[in-house]
Computed example of a mutant assay.
Amino acid sequence: MDKDTVSIYFVRAALAHLAPEALPAVLRAAGIPAEMLAHRQARVPARASRRCGWPSRTSSTTNSSASTRAA
């Protein structure tokens, strides 16, 4: 079992830009059952959420550092 998890809220936010017909394939590739999207308190492994387009903590930290230096 993965100890790092992400709220389904963030997964839904990452998937919001997808065309509806693409959603099943992305969820399948990430290993997230579509039914989980309906559970407000659900959590998914962080690894699965990154497969849905949500950035990893490392990449978001790197991006914010770069923008701070550029300013």
Score class of each variant (00 low, 15 high):
S65G: 10
R12E: 09
A66H: 04
R12S: 08
G31K: 04
W54T: 11
S67L: 15
H39Q: 14
A22Q: 13
M36A: 14
V26E: 03
T61R: 08
L23K: 09
E35F: 10
A66I: 11
G31I: 06
V11L: 03
S7C: 04
S64N: 07
A29Y: 09
T5K: 11
F10V: 07
L27C: 02
F10M: 02
A42D: 03
V11S: 03
A48W: 02
V6K: 02
A38Y: 09
E21R: 06
T61L: 11
A66V: 08
V26H: 01
P55T: 14
S59R: 15
A19V: 12
V44M: 02
A14G: 07
T68F: 10
L23F: 02
T68H: 09
I32S: 02
S65D: 04
L37D: 01
L23V: 04
D2G: 00
T61H: 05
S59F: 09
A16Q: 13
Q41A: 13
E21W: 05
R43Q: 08
A70M: 11
E21M: 03
L27Q: 01
D4H: 06
S49K: 05
L27G: 02
P20V: 11
H39Y: 10
A66E: 05
R12P: 00
S56D: 11
M36E: 11
T61W: 06
A38H: 07
R40S: 10
A48V: 05
A34M: 07
P20I: 12
A22I: 02
N63I: 14
A42W: 08
R69E: 12
A29S: 09
A71R: 10
